[in-house]
Design a protein around this nucleic acid. Structure first.
Length: 672
DNA sequence: GCGATCAGTT
DNA sequence: CACAACTGATCGC
């Protein structure tokens, strides 16, 4: 819960995300996203009255936020006073004191925050310096480096203060599985269920909050099944979201709600009814998106956790993890940082203690040089003319250039890779200002799900860890591999460190698919579910943008290949599959088919086969879009660019299963 | 009656 | 152990 009071020390005449008390006097208002806890006072009669007499007061937000806000009649009175500002378009605003006529100019730039549809960060530039208000955000490691407008003259802007979303700024929340990993996990769970028969349905037990649209659209996109929701009028002008939603209950994916949701959750009843239109009982599983987090050194487990016979929790987070926050802030390296949130169980001082070392020290006021890697190199020459923070020499800053799709603007050569098979939902993501970078890439990446120790909640039945077993046949574009840097995929061998435990997580996907059995794996003791993390925690951060946490990529790569090998012909969605006994509960089927205790030996050999294939010279066919960009954009200024021979060495050692010195690897790749 | 606040729940 | 939303009780206008 944000404890930001609405005002920044540098620009106290504007108010952001708070509209009560002192903020009633603001010359301008800003709303970062449409969540209630950032809208305090926004519909209060006092503010409404003020608006009626102060005609120059406006509310600035993203176009999507405006749309969502005005959907609610309670906020309609704002209609004439909301100014939608396009993402990444520096815009000058005059802050006028209506009593004195005093005027101050400020330039604001909206940057995508990846928190929910329309969510943005605000970058303010004015006479009191450049400040960044992050609102709530979920940005993967390295994403700040790709935000062009955070840079100037090839460097990170000199930022005076950051007002930071510190929701998870505590080492407890060291990592949260990436959006892509979570999405993949949920996708495969849903797929494994709804492909059994038309009467197998999934209920996504989501809160009434913006932020799940991206989940719905991705599931719908991948599975070709619309999502049943109660309301969709807020998306009426967002066709790319709208097309994936329906208010018609005869679909297999539901996100409809009910006041007594918990009862439904426990009894696996669908809020909109328990039988199909022709009175056939529906087989329902429920999935509750929840934040799951993992400590730095914790064991691995899955992003899907089974909580009952037919109920699951799936990892889903709207906020950046501890390591993502640290990456973000250390990249920006401002003079000051102000936490917007004090997480429960910690204090302002503790949070500051964590964040202060990531800021510029008071001794060294010189902004640190931030090499921009490819971003810098790919900047066009003409851009240099508008660099060096000189926006105020120009009375009316205009957009820096013709607006390109986000990724194009930021990382042109990555776009060449991903834009080839135009992702049909890219427009949507753009339009919602949410998660563009990661989503787009992950739809190709087929990120998978493994992460460390679960924060199981003690509720409902004892939890059963479950793992989704295989991935959908993601069509990867043929991708160019950076020839300069050794590729992890070439060297990594799945069975390096595969223990029996590890294998349990990887029953053959061909097996699974062949029988249309569930792709879930249940394990009652939880101890044996985790994938041996030795290797993957050493895995280098070779994802490109949309990059995830720094581990688990090895598994991701493996699974992607495994899946594609075993599963290419499987495209038939929503067809009845007679082989499966519809009435058998998922748990039973999983036990029957995927019992960890008797993983058939041929499964292992199949794995080996796959791994062999992975090492074939034509591996590039299967290579994820994981270019080397992260090496070229070190996440900290101190980070050393790994040398080719080092990487070569590292990968070879890992590939052959030999020990390497972990600290050494970390010093190349990770910050501390 | 409405809204703000708080505690509790999910 | 979180979030974001909701519910219900209480208080004040």
């Amino acid at each position: 819960m944000s404890s930001f009071q609405g005002q920044m020390v540098e620009y106290p005449t504007i108010s952001i995300d708070r509209f009560d008390r002192e903020n009633l006097k603001a010359r301008a208002y800003f709303l970062s996203h449409c969540h209630k806890d950032h809208m305090k006072g926004l519909r209060a009669p006092t503010l409404k009255r003020r608006l009626e007499c102060s005609l120059k007061v406006h509310l600035y937000c993203s176009p999507v936020t405006k749309e969502l806000l005005l959907t609610s009649p309670k906020y309609r009175f704002w209609e004439k006073r909301i100014v939608a500002i396009e993402i990444e378009t520096p815009t000058q605003i005059s802050l006028i004191d209506e009593a004195s006529g005093e005027k101050e100019e400020i330039v604001v730039t909206l940057l995508p925050a990846g928190h929910c549809p329309g969510s943005v960060m605000f970058l303010f530039q004015g006479n009191n310096g450049t400040v960044l208000y992050t609102g709530d955000f979920r940005l993967a490691k390295g994403e700040a480096a790709r935000m062009e407008l955070l840079h100037s003259g090839g460097r990170v802007r000199d930022i005076q203060s950051v007002y930071l979303d510190t929701t998870f700024c505590d080492p407890r929340f060291y990592q949260i599985p990436s959006r892509g990993e979570c999405l993949s996990g949920i996708l495969e769970l849903v797929r494994s269920w709804i492909t059994r028969s038309p009467y197998h349905v999934v209920w996504l037990n989501c809160k009434a909050a913006y932020g799940y649209a991206y989940l719905f659209t991705n599931l719908s996109e991948e599975l070709g099944v619309q999502v049943h929701v109660d309301k969709l009028d807020m998306f009426r002008n967002m066709p790319d979201i709208l097309q994936h939603l329906t208010t018609e209950r005869s679909t297999q994916i539901h996100a409809c709600r009910h006041p007594k949701a918990e009862e439904y959750y426990q009894w696996n009843k669908l809020p909109c009814g328990t039988t199909s239109k022709n009175k056939i009982p529906l087989q329902t599983i429920s999935i509750k998106p929840s934040t799951m987090w993992f400590g730095e050194r914790s064991r691995k487990t899955n992003v899907i956790v089974r909580t009952g016979e037919s109920s699951y929790r799936a990892c889903f987070s709207f906020h950046s993890s501890y390591s993502e926050i640290k990456d973000f802030l250390s990249y920006i390296c401002p003079m000051n940082v102000y936490p917007n949130v004090i997480p429960v169980g910690t204090t302002l001082d503790k949070v500051k203690e964590i964040l202060k070392p990531l800021c510029r020290s008071s001794q060294n006021t010189e902004p640190k040089y931030k090499p921009l890697g490819k971003l810098k190199r790919f900047r066009r020459v003409h851009l240099d003319s508008e660099e060096e923070d000189d926006l105020f020499d120009d009375p009316l800053p205009v957009p820096l250039r013709h607006k390109l799709p986000y990724q194009l603007t930021l990382h042109p050569e990555v776009v060449l890779l991903t834009a080839v098979p135009q992702n049909p939902s890219e427009k949507l993501r753009k339009s919602t200002g949410c998660c563009e970078v990661e989503s787009v890439h992950n739809s190709f990446l087929a990120n998978f799900i493994d992460c460390e120790e679960s924060n199981s909640e003690s509720e409902e039945e004892s939890e059963i860890s479950a793992s989704v077993q295989d991935l959908d046949p993601v069509v990867l574009p043929q991708q160019k591999v950076d020839a300069d840097v050794p590729q992890w995929e070439v060297f990594f061998k799945r069975n390096d460190n595969v223990t029996d435990e590890g294998l349990e997580n990887f029953p053959s996907s061909t097996e699974t698919r062949g029988s249309q059995s569930p792709k879930l794996f249940s394990d009652s003791d939880g101890e044996s579910t985790h994938i041996s993390s030795q290797n993957s925690s050493q895995s280098t951060h070779i994802t490109e943008q949309g990059s995830q946490g720094w581990d688990s990529q090895a598994d991701t790569v493996l699974l992607s290949s495994q899946d594609r090998n075993g599963d290419n012909g499987f495209l038939n969605k929503s067809v009845h599959r007679p082989k499966v006994k519809d009435s058998v509960p998922a748990s039973q089927m999983e036990q029957n088919i995927l019992s960890p205790k008797d993983t058939p030996s041929h499964v292992k050999s199949r794995e080996q086969d796959i791994l062999e294939e992975k090492r074939l010279p034509n591996y590039s066919t299967y290579t994820d879009s994981q270019s080397s960009s992260d090496f070229e954009i070190p996440s900290t200024p101190e980070a050393e660019l790994p040398k080719q021979e080092h990487l070569q060495y590292l990968y070879e050692r890992l590939a052959t299963g030999e020990n390497i010195v972990v600290e050494k690897a970390h010093s190349w790749i990770f910050k501390n």
